[in-house]
């Protein structure tokens, strides 16, 4: 479905995740983060960039991988994106949430 985020018309799924990550920009990230109750800082964007790079390289994202990224440890990752950091950070980064097969 279509949604207007930060003045831009983008495609999102039922759970509000962008379905085309090319439509992402920092303003969109800020507005999605606000919906999640998070105010983004440069520190958040460092993590978001890492997540987007991993997604582009088709590397499956896990909490462990973020912890070993050298960018942020797992405790800080939770502080930056409380309650389900991987799915929240993914949504703000404009990529799909981590899923299983069903």
């Amino acid at each position: 479905m279509e949604k207007i985020i930060a003045g831009a018309t983008v495609q999102v799924n039922d759970e509000g995740y962008l379905t085309d990550h090319h439509q992402w920009n920092r303003e969109i990230a800020n507005e999605i983060a606000e919906e999640e109750g998070i105010e983004l800082t440069e520190r958040h964007f460092e993590v978001i960039t890492f997540i987007q790079d991993q997604y582009a390289a088709e590397v499956p994202l896990t909490i462990r991988k973020i912890g070993k990224s050298g960018i942020v440890d797992i405790k800080e990752f939770y502080q930056l994106f409380p309650n389900g950091p991987l799915k929240k950070a993914s949504r703000i980064a404009g990529i799909p949430k981590p899923v299983s097969c069903i």
Partner: peptide
């Protein structure tokens, strides 16, 4: 589970 639920794909979530 580390995921958002027992079912994570939309159709399976709805039906199961």
């Amino acid at each position: 589970t580390p995921l958002s639920g027992a079912f994570t794909k939309p159709i399976a979530s709805k039906k199961l």
